[in-house]
Write a protein that binds this DNA or RNA. Structure first.
Lengths: 222, 222, 222, 222
DNA sequence: TATGAATGAGCATTCATTCAT
DNA sequence: AATGAATGAATGCTCATTCAT
């Protein structure tokens, strides 16, 4: 029943069937190698794996960084979404939080490039990756107000995720489930029955155990 | 002409005075740049900074990796020692643990190469680095038996350290003290008042929140 | 539905309407960018600017060089024509010559591709570009017999044009009018009051100042 | 008689015999290919021709541009010097000027990279190449005050050189001596017997033959 | 036939490692 | 033994030309 095709259709000869296929192949291949080897991979490897020439790859992604960012954005989104879904039908707010972490750490923490870049996404506005997760966490955090220790912020949970994500990666090869225990411990520390306030958020008067002055660290010259 | 070589000859031909000095200079320089820039540094930079030629550097350390390992071994040791000392005159076992973590995270967590390689030291037998810390933690762990949640192992604490170390590094630039809160939370989760057992250590029957089957992670194809 | 194709079909299948339009668009676009950026431009740029696809462009001009030559041929013609017209209503033969140079240097000397390729057109029979100018100059030369120094040939004037064209381009950015003086000087050198004969045209017995043997040049090995 | 070697000698283990040889080989090879093919040559070609690896080439010249500039500087200097020497024992100031141009145009005008870059050296302070020639010309210009048309500047002569250099290059393949005539003409135009003043140096009130407004040039949109 | 996506050789540059001095 | 010059494979990226749709 479609009446005369909208103008745009006439102009933009839709069919980029193969182009789309290629783009997808590139992203797929990139996702794979970035997950496995991190952002240091040779672009040629991605091209080879996706079955396209260098030119094609660079037509779709003019800079390696563009491809990396595209993949990361997508994977962060997938990650956030899968973790969100895992939390959605939990019985109670606490279970939702638990399930979220579980899924998040199970799902993507072994993605080299993601873990590599999680750090950077704190500040890089191009990579809203972390924002996706922030949003999910924020909702969980709000929903868990009563069961969460007072003063715990979304950013605390986000950082916890980053932190545990690294633990997952570290132990992935030889102690694949060891992080379960760490998650357990951390979650327990987050419960409402800990009434002791957390150190100030932007502490200038730095909290330290028994006011010990930190000393003899490395890179003091900085 | 040479008369019977004196005993020393049998060993190795004494003149290692400068050789030792060189080796030390190399390691010192490497320590600095590895801490600052991670293992990606150009070997030339190390040679330049230590004032020796490339040849000398490669005589002492045939592969870049050898040098890196040497430095890491040493820095891990220093790290462990400084953290140990920080804990030694604590009032009670719990304070010792607290102080240990505090010092460890304050002191070396910004050492790029260390954090980069902490992961590897789990499995790499060449790098007993982590063992040094293990030893210290083991003692603290034993001493804190009563105040520590039952079932917490040395390895748990070690992994917690790795995990928090990453958090420190991630936030170092923009939120320098944010990890304090995470440490606080984690330590609280470690206390004896949490009587719930931790998930099994080498869980084959994997613990999971409400027996959820982990799904749709990345790199399943592996 | 198409009724029997009219005669034109035998010739070539009439529909060259758009083909011609395309060809024109391509040449127009190419003219612009070649003038602005020289022959190093990316062919894509030309395609984009002319609104046709790469395929179409390459259908009309199988090699980049073909397109360049077409454009140059055309621009040389336009150039020659505009310079001819500038000379046509001069008061006397000398003024005609002067006006010609003036117009030629003002008009096209900043056309990057033209200046770039002026050299080649001496020898390349495909590019009769220079011939167009030759024709014009020849007429001017003939008309100016009396006022021109004896022995000056059309080719001399042609080469002078090439030479000054380069000067125009060189100084275009920072000393836009500096070439005026050079033109003035050269024209004065062309006047009839210089009676000294010019060096032989195809001098084997090379003219040289005081028979100095040229020495130590570059590329002697060639 | 040399007393104790100066300190610097002790430190800087002089012998870079092969390094010097290599550097020379590189420059020599670069000189050759730059003269023949211009600055577009592949760096590999230079490396191959000089018999060194890429790394060696880049050790001596961290950027291609560095090598190019080094070669150009050297060749400009050689060029200026050879032209200066050619002028030095001329009988009179005018002959000096003539000989200078002769030698300059005979010597290096076929050096592709030099001609390519002559233009740029007007503005690029890194390439004092042109300055060398300027200096020589300046002296000749001063010395020829009486025989040179009044108002002729060093820059006029410099531009004439650039301009004629291009003519030499253009005709090198098919009409190798044609530029002799042009030089003759130009020099005649420079003589003192032309008393008509040259157009203003920084003419705002642009000189033009019969005040013709320049029109219909290319690149008007600029 | 027109389109623009695909190709891949080619280019400047880096860096771990080897080797002549 | 020490030096630092030499090596060359590898990397990110470009662009004239071809080809599937």
């Amino acid at each position: 029943m479609a009446v005369a095709e909208p103008e745009s259709t006439r102009r933009r000869r839709a069919p980029r069937a193969d182009a789309i296929r290629n783009q997808e192949a590139i992203v797929e291949a990139a996702t794979k190698v970035l997950a496995e080897q991190g952002t240091a991979v040779d672009v040629r490897e991605i091209a080879r794996l996706s079955g396209v020439g260098m030119g094609t790859l660079y037509r779709h992604f003019p800079k390696k960084e563009d491809l990396v960012k595209t993949v990361l954005r997508q994977d962060f989104t997938k990650w956030a979404e899968s973790a969100r879904l895992a939390a959605i039908d939990a019985e109670d707010p606490w279970a939702a939080l638990t399930d979220f972490f579980w899924q998040a750490l199970t799902g993507y923490a072994r993605h080299r490039a993601i873990v590599e870049n999680f750090a950077l996404t704190w500040s890089d506005p191009d990579l809203e990756g972390i924002q996706q997760l922030r949003l999910v966490i924020e909702r969980l955090c709000d929903g868990a107000k009563g069961v969460l220790r007072p003063g715990v912020t979304t950013d605390d949970l986000l950082l916890l995720l980053v932190s545990l994500g690294h633990a997952v990666q570290v132990t992935d090869d030889c102690r694949p489930q060891m992080w379960h225990r760490l998650l357990h411990i951390s979650l327990d520390g987050l419960r409402a029955d800990h009434r002791e306030p957390l150190p100030a958020r932007h502490s200038t008067g730095t909290w330290s155990p028994r006011s010990r002055t930190p000393s003899s660290g490395c890179r003091e010259t900085r």
